[in-house]
């Protein structure tokens, strides 16, 4: 059973890759090309300054005059600095290959026990993400059931759920971290709270819609059997809601990851993607920031991909996968 599931997953991923590879690669190529071009003007000034210190002759000569020029025209006037814009140690915009190099160093080369390993930092953020995701999803489903079955909850909870999402998380996150820190709760849990805060909402909205999706005839059918509402939930409403649930989970897991990262920013956490982004910023190591950014994006993509595979397997087993 388990092996069947695992090979099924592998096949699912393969299929996804085959179908999605061409358009996805095209988009990536366009973005990388644009990024590569942007490196030149973005880094032109600091490259020029460095080159002049190293004895290169530039036009215009005076640094103050160069400030008047745009990065692009500076580079065009001094084509010799163009290759150098790609190899700065502290660039304003790192080039793609520098970010890839940094990712390679910190993900594959470093031991995962090292404080510089992105795998280590990734796990710190991921564990908070997953805990928050489970909490948020559980809360979201419970609220949705309450909203669907109780008029009072429908009237009272839904407006608050919506309001909760209008408060900027950047304002709220420090408060949560500081308050929980004041009562001695630190580390994983406060970050998970922020993850849960961001991820419960799509689950509530999706599940309310899903639990209400059965049509009048499907409901009438159960009434003709004299079904109680408990049976109606398990036999009709819950199975009907599964496709909606998965759509919500995919939004929720990305939101959870964002929440965990945001939770790492305000207190200057020492570990996690958020911490790496801050460190890179504060110590003028843009590559570190960018590598953490990319690692977070890749992590989010993988989490969503895993959920997609589980979704496909589940819906297929429920006879709804063919469509």
């Amino acid at each position: 059973m388990r092996t069947a599931f695992v090979t099924g997953c592998a096949r699912g991923i393969l299929m996804t890759r085959l179908n999605a590879i061409i358009p996805a690669l095209t988009v990536v190529a366009v973005i990388v090309a644009f990024w590569t071009l942007c490196v030149i003007p973005m880094n032109a000034h600091l490259t020029a300054d460095q080159a002049q210190r190293d004895g290169m002759v530039l036009t215009p000569e005076a640094p103050r005059d160069r400030q008047e020029l745009s990065g692009l025209s500076l580079a065009l006037k001094n084509p010799a600095i163009i290759p150098l814009t790609y190899v700065q140690t502290r660039p304003r915009l790192p080039s793609p290959h520098q970010v890839v190099q940094e990712l390679y160093d910190t993900v594959i080369d470093k031991k995962i026990t090292s404080k510089r390993s992105l795998v280590y930092h990734g796990w710190v953020t991921l564990s908070a993400t997953l805990l928050g995701f489970v909490m948020g999803t559980t809360l979201g489903i419970m609220l949705a059931v309450g909203i669907v079955y109780s008029r009072t909850m429908d009237k009272s909870v839904m407006p608050w759920a919506i309001t909760s999402q209008t408060i900027p998380i950047l304002a709220l996150a420090p408060m949560i971290i500081v308050m929980l820190g004041a009562i001695g709760i630190q580390g994983l849990f406060p970050k998970s709270i922020i993850s849960a805060y961001l991820s419960f909402f799509p689950v509530v909205v999706g599940m309310v819609k899903g639990l209400r999706s059965p049509d009048a005839m499907q409901l009438d059918l159960l009434r003709t059997y004299g079904t109680n509402s408990n049976q109606g939930f398990w036999k009709l409403r819950l199975p009907s809601s599964i496709p909606y649930l998965f759509a919500s989970l995919k939004i929720g897991i990305s939101a959870s990851l964002v929440g965990a990262i945001v939770g790492e920013l305000p207190t200057g956490a020492r570990a996690g993607f958020g911490a790496r982004m801050l460190v890179g910023d504060q110590y003028g190591q843009p590559m570190v920031t960018w590598a953490a950014l990319f690692a977070a994006a890749i992590t989010a993509a993988m989490l969503v991909a895993i959920l997609s595979v589980i979704e496909r397997q589940t819906l297929r087993r429920m006879g709804m996968g063919a469509a």
Binding site: M217, Q218, D220, L221, T224, Y225, G226, L236, P239, S240, I242, M318, G319, M320
Partner: peptide
Amino acid sequence: ARAYGYVFQAAGLYPW
């Protein structure tokens, strides 16, 4: 009391 069986105008089978 489950006195009757009802067949609707459309089949209304549960797809899952």
